[in-house]
């Protein structure tokens, strides 16, 4: 379904090459930093950035392109974390090996829960995703094999701490790079344009031939798989999984915030939004109390919703649009690119 057919790009060819080179340079820099730096705190923080980037990109597929705002991404994350913790507890399997299974568990849940929830639109969908988080949290308290409020402990890796930190850094980096590449591919694919059509007007999309139900399910299951996978690895990183912390609403809200601030519905949005939000959150954490912190965050969100609905990427695109020469482009320039 992916990339069968590329629509004419909304960007100029030269800018794309420039943008891709910059992205590759940043990626190479991050690899180098992870391999060389001995600043464990920075490595740890960047690991968290990458982890959030995976979940935010996952959110972006259905939320950013498709317009279905999931306020319960932590459900998939938590299911993934629990799946790998349970597989470790009862079968002794390492989360590194079972991460795809953790993803599959979340995807299966996503497929099933999607049957009723993806029929809901707008705020109804958003609200139900929050309710589902609480429901799954309660389920994890009560299931016979999740050890209730006690939670599940995992064994730390038997290796030196610097190596362990670097290992997580690189695993999360690889997952984040994969997720970002995937979303980039989605953005330019039939599938991505089907999602955009759904976001713009779902009934009209269906009537012109977009199989809206199948597209929404696919997007949701894909998002669940990505999030569950990273949740599975997270279990090994945090070493202790219990219902309250694992299903924290904050995580879901952060993800939406990161995508919206960066620019939902663009592959660059999460890349900008995730580090920015984590940075601001960190700065606020060391300067003000957590209550004030939340108020400031809420104000930022409201301001963005009011004044920059497209997030930072939207702002950049607007600036570019205004800088475009007043002479209109000839039709040829916006024809489909012939290269890949």
């Amino acid at each position: 379904m992916f990339a069968l057919f590329f629509l004419p790009s909304r960007h100029g060819q030269r800018r794309i090459v420039g943008g891709r080179l910059a992205t590759l340079a940043i990626a190479a820099g991050l690899v180098g930093y992870g391999a060389m730096s001995s600043n464990l705190g920075a490595i740890d923080t960047l690991g968290t950035v990458f982890m959030y980037l995976v979940v935010t990109q996952a959110w972006n597929i259905l939320g950013g392109y498709g317009g279905y705002l999931n306020f319960g991404m932590v459900t998939y994350f938590g299911i993934g974390a629990y799946a790998s913790a349970v597989l470790f507890q009862y079968f002794g399997l390492s989360p590194f090996l079972t991460a795809p299974l953790a993803g599959a568990a979340a995807a299966l849940f996503g497929l099933l829960i999607g049957i009723p929830t993806l029929r809901l639109r707008g705020a109804y969908f958003a609200v139900i995703t929050i309710i589902i988080t609480f429901a799954v949290q309660l389920l994890m308290l009560d299931l016979p094999f999740t050890q209730g409020a006690l939670g599940i402990f995992l064994s730390p890796l038997a290796a030196n701490p610097v190596f362990v930190e670097r290992l997580f850094y690189f695993i999360f980096f690889a997952l984040a790079a994969t997720a970002t590449t995937l979303v980039f591919a989605v953005e330019n694919s039939n599938f991505g344009w089907a999602l955009v059509a759904i976001r713009e007007d779902e009934d009209a999309a269906e009537v012109i031939g977009v199989r809206t139900t199948a597209v929404k399910w696919t997007a949701n299951a894909l998002a669940a798989f990505m999030t569950g996978t990273v949740g599975g690895i997270y279990a090994q990183r945090i070493l202790y999984i219990e219902p309250t912390g694992t299903f924290a609403l904050d995580i879901s809200l952060n993800v939406v915030l990161m995508a919206v601030i960066g620019g939902a519905g663009t592959w660059q949005g999460p890349v900008i939004g995730v580090p920015l939000v984590l940075l601001v959150a960190e700065a606020l954490r060391v300067t003000v109390t957590s209550e004030v912190n939340r108020v400031i965050f809420s104000i930022i969100v409201i301001l963005i919703a009011l004044f920059v609905p497209g997030g930072i990427m939207g702002l950049l695109q607007e600036v570019r649009r205004r800088m475009r020469p007043l002479v209109r482009k000839s039709a040829g320039e916006t024809m489909p690119r012939t290269g890949g």
Partner: peptide
């Protein structure tokens, strides 16, 4: 133009 591409894609 993009409005017209979406039905063609599908």
């Amino acid at each position: 133009r993009q409005n017209l591409f979406i039905p063609l894609l599908h």
